[in-house]
Structures are given as structure tokens and as C-alpha cells.
């Protein structure tokens, strides 16, 4: 089964490390994929604040292009960014549930020579790795088990809500199971899906910083060595504003924030460069993590 891959705008700028690590992991696991030709922005939360029909049409163009690119059967479209994942999924679901919306959008698409038939299945890479590829298969491929590393998995909001595709809306566990399969230790913490504020750090920073502070403090309190995210905006917020949070609230938070694909890559034995590690502000220190034979892992 070949996957189509929808990068989204953030994976080409602030979230470049996510794209690099995701593609490297897909390659090393021999999961076949192909980038969606001439994809456009999903519209995120902003486009729909201006014009809803256009927002659906914008997202539906990607779905229609996916159908053009793979003419038969169900298409699995991988969208790694949580916002893209949700917007594409929501468009797909709303087109299915509301015939009037479907008709309106398809008549718009028809004018540009496109049509959406409903063959696309929007998938998050986490779902693909855990439920398609399988945890046992991942465990088999692990070169450096991340023994002793305590990981707080942060799922963010839009990957699990409002649609329940592969996990619980408030207490998901897929990433924790993956972390476990890599040999690390998932930390039990209650703020897994609490919102990071999204673009609030750029608009009303006071509110944005407080939301992120809460997440960071809780992860720290639960003894996490590293926080994993699956969304470029969550990663950006939690990582880039840490310094400002420390200054403003007189904290001493020092939490590395990585994409889950990066940690996967480390366990699978990929190099720092392949995983875009140099793009992070803080490299997680994995000095204590030992190889099964007792030697130090110097994967970073």
C-alpha cells in the first residue's frame, strides 16, 4: 500500500525538522510514499474565520488532487501537522455528512476541472506507524532502545478532537505505546491534550505563554526528560517561548521538545542530520541512556 504525503506549510518552515525526520523514518521502515502534487495550504483555523465555503473548497482541492494522483481504491493521505490533519479530515467528514456542502463544493471544484468522489482517508503518521506498520515490527527494527528515558507525550488538541479516528479525545495513549516500543518510559500526565494556544503566542502573547507554562511545568513535575509533540505549532510554542516563560514567570524550565518522529529515528539508528536535530534549540541529552550491552549511545 502506497501512501500519499501532504506536507503542509509549516513543515516547510518552522517544522522542517518534522518533515526531515518523518521522511527518514518512513524510508528506513520501507513504507512507500509519494508527495501530493501541487498541494495547497489547508487553510488552518484562519481561513474558515473569513469564508467557510472557500475554506472547504481550499481543503477539498487537496483531496481532489489526491484522487487524480491515485486513480484506484482508497487513498491514505498522510498529514503530519495536526491542523492540516484536522482541516482535511473535517472537510472530508463534512462533505460526507452534509450533502448540500458536498454539492456546493463539488460544483466549485468542477469549474476548475476537479471533482471529489470521497475516496480519501486522511491519516496521521502516528496512526500509520502504530496501527498500520505495527508496534511489534517497530520494536524489531529498534537499534538503540531508549532505556531509562522518561517521555511526556503531548498530543495537542486537533489530532484527537473533534473526530475520534484512532484514539481517545482526552486521554490518548497511542504515542505512549510507541514510546514504550522504543524502549523508553512514558510519563503519565493529565495535560496530554490540553491546548497550547496555537497562534496566541504571536497575537495575545500573555495568554499563549501561560498556557505553555502550564504544560511545561506539569511535564517537569512528572519527571519527564523530554516532551514529544506531533504538531509543528505545538513544538514551536513549547520550545521557542521557554526562555520567555522563564524570564516572565521566574521559572527554571529546561525541557527539550522534539517531534515523535525524531525520537523514533534515534532509536532506529538514524543520524542527527537525517532527523533535523540541529534545528532544535535544545538537544535532548541522552547520555544516561545505555545500549543493551552497556555502552553509551552517541546517536545525537
Amino acid at each position: 500500500m502506497k501512501y500519499l504525503y501532504y506536507p503542509g506549510c509549516s513543515l516547510r518552515s518552522t517544522g522542517r525538522a518534522y518533515e526531515e525526520s518523518l521522511l527518514s523514518v518512513l524510508k528506513v521502515l520501507d513504507i512507500p510514499f509519494e508527495e501530493l502534487n501541487d498541494w495547497n495550504c489547508c487553510g488552518a483555523t484562519s481561513y474558515v474565520s473569513i469564508d467557510e465555503t472557500d475554506a472547504f473548497a481550499l481543503a477539498a482541492r487537496n483531496l481532489a488532487l489526491a484522487e487524480l494522483q491515485s486513480p484506484d481504491g482508497t487513498i491514505n493521505l498522510i498529514a503530519p501537522c495536526s491542523a492540516c490533519f484536522l482541516v482535511l479530515l473535517k472537510t472530508e467528514r463534512y462533505l460526507e455528512s452534509y450533502p448540500d456542502v458536498r454539492e456546493k463544493i463539488n460544483s466549485t471544484l468542477d469549474k476548475a476541472g476537479l471533482h471529489y468522489h470521497g475516496r480519501v482517508n486522511v491519516r496521521h503518521p502516528l496512526d500509520v506507524f502504530v496501527n498500520d506498520y505495527g508496534l511489534e515490527n517497530i520494536t524489531k527494527r529498534v537499534k538503540y532502545p531508549l532505556k531509562g528515558l522518561k517521555v511526556a507525550s503531548y498530543y495537542g488538541c486537533q489530532m484527537v478532537r473533534p473526530f475520534k479516528t484512532f484514539d481517545h479525545s482526552h486521554y490518548p495513549e497511542t504515542m505512549d505505546r510507541l514510546v514504550n516500543a522504543l524502549g523508553a518510559e512514558p510519563v503519565d500526565w493529565p495535560l496530554k491534550t490540553r491546548c497550547c494556544g496555537g497562534s496566541l503566542t504571536g497575537t495575545i502573547q500573555e495568554a499563549g505563554l501561560r498556557l505553555n507554562r502550564l504544560l511545561l511545568k506539569e511535564a517537569e513535575k512528572r519527571g519527564a526528560d523530554i516532551m514529544l509533540t506531533c504538531c509543528p505549532l505545538c513544538q514551536h510554542n513549547l520550545e521557542c517561548y521557554q526562555e520567555r516563560i522563564n524570564r516572565k514567570f521566574d521559572e527554571k524550565i529546561d525541557m527539550p521538545i522534539a517531534f515523535f518522529t525524531q525520537l523514533m529515528g534515534v532509536a532506529l539508528g538514524l543520524s542527527e542530520k537525517e532527523l533535523g536535530m540541529q534545528r532544535l534549540f535544545k538537544m535532548p541529552s541522552l547520555n544516561q541512556i545505555t545500549h543493551p550491552k552497556g555502552e553509551m549511545v552517541n546517536a545525537w
Partner: peptide
């Protein structure tokens, strides 16, 4: 509203 869909679900 940051569209976290918490209330929605």
C-alpha cells in the same frame, strides 16, 4: 477561541 474542540466533544 483557539479551536481546540474540547467543548465540541
Amino acid at each position: 477561541c483557539a479551536s481546540c474542540y474540547s467543548c465540541y466533544v
